[in-house]
Amino acid sequence: MGKDILKVERLERVFRVGSEDVHALRGVSFTIQEGEFVSIMGTSGSGKSTLLNILGCLDTPTAGDYIIDGVSIRNLSKNELSTLRNRKIGFVFQNYNLLARTTALENVELPLFYNNTVPAKERKERAAAALKLVGLEKRMEHMPNQLSGGQQQRVAIARALVNDPVILLADEATGNLDTRTSYEIMSLFQDLHEQGKTIAFVTHEPDIATFTTRKIKLRDGQIIEDAPINTQSAAEALAAINLQKED
């Protein structure tokens, strides 16, 4: 296998709610290697959102260490964390989080505005290339409200890819979509995985998890299951639905 992209060691996160301490994470350790497609599962309250926030460098652990692409986030300042998010992480959210009244191309360009190393000229080219990768080369000038839910999520994926991150973090990325569109999006993720992208996919739907290569299951802030799974093809699942419809 390839190198370690992500490594968490005995991660703990304690929130103080009123006078009580709430332990959201109680010593979580795992490693994600380059080219893996990991699903992180768990019911609500299991700590998966807290874990995702820490993996996404939006939050810092109370104890334990987190190393992303060889950089430990301990002792990093807020600004350094921001830069890290910009260069190494691509977020895909459940509700897309696209800027309204802004074209798909401009939405995808957005992360590059916060990256001084990318000159203005290159920005458009890279955004267009990312949109082409998700199959939206004909929709570049469309506003979000002119796109379907699936297309909006594709724009969001293109935005996550544009800075060429070491890992894609998807948070319930199919949560707002119907089954058919969910499978289309999963098929896109599988394509990206084929091309060598590392993906961590948070979900609570077991059938979505079957499209990944490894499953990490959380309960009450601890890992209760971490195993490779028998990966299904999203494209085949999609074909099966289409067949059903024709009958």
Partner: peptide, 9 residues
């Protein structure tokens, strides 16, 4: 969103 994709404060 801007913060998540790397905007500094």
């Amino acid at each position: 969103l801007r913060m998540a994709i790397g905007a500094h404060n």
